[in-house]
Design a protein around this nucleic acid. Structure first.
Length: 497
RNA sequence: GGUAUCGUGGCCGAGGGGCUAGGCUCAGGUCUGCAAAACCUGCUACAGCGGUUCGAAUCCGCUCGAUACCUCCA
């Protein structure tokens, strides 16, 4: 199959035509969360970016194997030998088993992603489930002479690697000589560096100190895998030594992805992914949202409006829409005004989609619906330009409204096409569901029939010109958070939030 | 300090040498008993200063400002 999709490849620094290695199959690996605390909205942005990619690839007809890991062996708190594992630390503080911590936050993460309507990956492997494979890869790298063992730890030899492969630092634009010379390290007091031959070297296996809880037996003694190894191992295991796309947040470029490429080359003489894609950060007041910045909030807080920075609750679909309005490689600044604008835009889009089934066709079309569809796809083909795709969709929204108001026409063929295609695209590629429809439970049906009664009574009052009663009904309902909407074809209502 | 990226109308955000997205706000209008809602229409911006060019928001240089990364981070 021939694709028309172009993606920005961080490795080469340019947009490239996407050619699958073995079409129609596509291997996609995305760095998942470290589950020692709740995922915040910034984390979610990255996963929603790659959810969009996953969905679009499927929409194009690819058979995608989407692998997203769960990092359940916590990274160290610092670079020192004495550094504590984040999961182990949290476990100690809360008097829980490390795996209880892991379980709690893994479940929380999945719940949030489900609420945001992100499709689950094909495989969600964990680091601790692949210790054997990681030990195996350490052995392989040692065998090539590109790693060395010191006191039960194994370090990757960056200088030696770079001599052979000449590509360390290419992804992140680092100058290896400076890394090797230890540039930039002045700021930090790095302990435990004496074991390394070079400050740029990184651990692929680390000896466990006596009080380190998470530990495994290895040929080098009891220890745990290095920070970057799991992704090399699990992408290789499930997608092969060479695969299509590797994604992750911008902040993982260095050192994580740089190390990953080096490990892959060292062990398999192949660099892993052919296309590297990086999503940009979510910011709050211009500053990156981060666990350590104190400006992070959790999706649950967002949905409940329960955070000092939030003026109101915002629904999961509003959040999705908000993120679709920005390109994934741009930073996106979180503001209440921005979310409120997104909420209105989202509702406008949904009400146009609701009009679609009831539209009547005419003799011809006043709008080029075929070109519209092509424009949306062209935008998506251009490195997932969802903001432009959305802009085209809003042109269609305007046209749908005009057809509904009988100000313009649409041909039967176009109507049939768009009735099928547009909701399909919005739901399955953008992942935007109609939240009103989602709430079709028993309670909602009861409320709806009660509301219908009230609306009928008010209509009668208005016919009698008893506006006192009709306005009383309207105002009391407003007070209860229900908005009546008087239209040509009768009155409808919606929750006013 | 090093390396990048970016500065777009009231706000958010695309685009990226001439055709100048979109959303929100705002203003007019349609509808309405009045409102609200909804819908329609309108609002020509690209940090500053130079340069290249017939033509620059777009390319180049400088200045100013912001952010990110430089072994925790999506």
């Amino acid at each position: 199959m021939s694709s028309t999709l172009y993606v920005y490849n961080s490795y080469t620094g340019q947009k490239e035509k996407f050619e699958a290695l073995t079409p129609p199959f596509v291997g996609l690996y995305v760095c998942g969360p470290t589950v020692y605390s709740d995922v915040h909205l910034g984390n979610c942005r990255t996963f929603l970016t790659f959810d969009l990619l996953y969905r679009y690839l499927r929409f194009l007809g690819y058979k995608v194997r989407y692998v997203r890991n769960i990092t359940d062996a916590g990274h160290l708190e610092n670079d020192a030998d004495e550094g504590e594992d984040k999961i182990a630390k949290k476990a100690r503080l809360e008097k829980l088993e490390p795996m209880e911590i892991v379980q709690r936050y893994t479940v929380g993460f999945r719940n949030v992603m489900r609420l945001l309507n992100a499709l689950p990956p094909s495989i969600e492997p964990t680091a601790t489930g692949h210790i054997v494979e990681q030990i195996e890869m350490v052995k392989q790298i040692l065998a090539t002479g590109l790693a060395y063992e010191v006191n039960g730890s194994v370090y990757f030899d960056v200088e030696k690697y770079h001599e052979k492969y000449k590509n360390y630092g290419k992804l992140s634009g680092r100058i290896v000589e400076e890394l090797i010379a230890g540039a930039g390290n002045e700021k930090r007091t790095l302990e435990g560096q004496d074991e390394k031959r070079n400050p740029a070297d990184f651990a692929i296996w680390k000896k466990a100190s006596p009080n380190h809880i998470m530990r495994w037996v290895s040929p080098w003694g009891e220890g745990f895998p290095g920070w970057h190894l799991e992704c090399s191992v699990m992408s290789t295991k499930y997608l092969g030594e060479e695969f299509d796309i590797h994604g992750g947040g911008m902040d993982l470029k260095f050192p994580h992805h740089e190390a990953e490429i080096a490990q892959n080359n060292a062990c398999c003489s192949k660099g892993g992914a052919r296309y590297w894609m990086h999503g940009n950060m979510l910011t709050v007041n211009g500053k990156r949202m981060g666990k350590s910045e104190g400006n992070a909030f959790l999706p649950e807080q967002l949905f409940a409006g329960d955070h000092p920075l939030l003026e109101q609750p915002y629904s999961p679909m509003t959040v999705r829409f908000f993120m679709l309005q920005a390109h994934y490689r741009s930073t996106l600044d979180f503001t209440n005004a921005g979310l409120q604008a997104a909420e209105k835009g989202y509702k406008r889009l949904m009400s146009a989609l609701n009009l679609l089934p009831g539209l009547k066709s005419g003799n011809s079309s006043d709008f080029d619906w075929d070109a519209f569809r092509a424009d949306v796809l062209a935008a998506m083909d251009d490195d997932l330009n969802s903001p432009v795709a959305l802009a085209h969709i809003f042109e269609a929204v305007k046209r749908i409204n005009s057809v509904h108001e009988q100000k313009e026409q649409i041909s039967a063929a176009h109507l049939e096409m768009i009735q099928q295609w547009l909701p399909d695209f919005v739901q399955n590629v953008f992942g935007l569901l109609n939240e009103e429809e989602q709430q079709g439970n028993e309670q909602a049906r009861l409320l709806d029939s009660a509301m219908q009664l009230i609306i009928d009574l008010r209509a009668e009052a208005r016919l009698r010109k008893d506006f006192g009663t009709s306005d009383l009904i309207r105002d009391r309902l407003i007070g209860s958070g229900i908005q009546l909407k008087d239209g040509k074809e009768g009155t409808t209502w919606e929750k006013n939030d």
